[in-house]
Design a protein around this nucleic acid. Structure first.
Length: 302
DNA sequence: CGTCAGGTAAAAA
DNA sequence: TTTTTACCTGAC
């Protein structure tokens, strides 16, 4: 079946968005299990022309399958309108040609996005995605042979933190701890985050909030600073007005808009949200990948 | 072996 | 309020 909106699937999958790790890739096909209304469903998606071709296995209707994929790949977002917006601005006009068909890769599971985003802080894409994949395989539920859902917060909350704690309390230590997944000093953040989601913050309240309230709320979670909070709201909850600002976005914004002058990450965030409004999230996504692919990043590295 | 990677928390200015 | 410092880990 085809979803008739343009997308570059591989670019979208491999762009390092902190919603979840990329789906399993075999040839040109990407697959993963998603809980749709609690029902495990295996999705297979691939590029067909410039659109999305998919099939699925699971006890849901075709309509539910389409609506799930529409959400995850943000297929209702009007890319051509966005490209017009970019082309009308001198600083942004080159970006669309370097990232044509790049879309948001939204979280199938917002809780997983929170943990992924915490894991991504001061980390590489390769390492955080492997950590999250390891957590799924160790403590998630197995479906359709080789696929795993992300474990529930109650599971993560009860895990040992590291080898030392495990060998202290366990009769046969066997890597049943968070740090064995390479999350490093983020392990206690993850566990405390789960506690907070049990007795203080209800993640399902977030979509009802306005941006500032959602931001202040999610910022209370251990391991979540401003950059990670914006990522969680953008990739996990589809708040498109988020403008996650890290050192790279700072360098790029500084180069494009402030004549290379050094400005704080916090100012960059304010600037991006003010300047780009509801397009802020997409501009951030395109900006980062434009810089990577155009060579601007190498130029700014020194 | 030292440096670095898409920051955060805690301490200090 | 804004700046500095230590920090798991794996790759180079």
């Amino acid at each position: 079946m085809i979803i008739n909106s343009p997308i570059n699937l591989e670019l979208t999958q491999l762009s390092g968005q902190t919603s979840q790790p990329p789906w399993k890739q075999v040839g040109d096909c990407f697959s993963d299990v998603v809980l749709v209304g609690g029902k495990p469903t295996l999705f297979n998606v691939r590029q067909s022309q410039d659109c999305l071709d998919f099939s699925f296995t699971g006890d849901i209707t075709e309509k539910e399958a389409i609506s799930t994929l529409n959400y995850i790949y943000d297929m209702d977002f009007d890319l051509s309108k966005f490209y017009k917006y970019l082309s009308n601005r001198e600083e942004l006009k080159d970006m669309s040609e370097f990232c044509n068909g790049l879309r948001l890769f939204l979280a199938a599971n917002p809780f997983e996005c929170v943990i992924s985003s915490i894991c991504s802080a001061n980390n590489s894409i390769k390492r955080w995605t492997k950590s999250i994949a390891d957590i799924r395989e160790k403590w998630g539920d197995n479906h359709f042979d080789a696929y795993y859902t992300f474990p529930d917060k109650s599971v993560i909350q009860d895990l040992y933190e590291d080898d030392e704690e495990e060998s202290l309390f366990s009769e046969n230590p066997c890597g049943n701890n968070l740090k064995s997944c390479g999350v490093g000093y983020r392990a206690p953040y993850m566990k405390k985050a789960c506690e907070i989601f049990t007795d203080e913050i209800n993640l399902s309240d977030i979509p009802e909030m306005d941006y500032d309230e959602a931001f202040e709320t999610i910022l209370k979670v251990p391991g979540v600073g401003p950059k990670v909070a914006d990522c969680i709201l953008l990739y996990g909850f589809n708040f498109k007005e988020a403008f996650p600002s890290d050192v790279w976005i700072k360098r790029i914004i500084s180069y494009l808009y402030f004549d290379g002058k050094d400005i704080s990450v916090s100012k960059v965030r304010d600037f991006g949200m003010e300047e780009f409004g509801d397009y802020a999230g997409y501009v951030q996504l395109y900006m980062f990948h434009y810089a990577r692919m155009s060579g601007l990043m190498d130029k700014l590295k020194k």
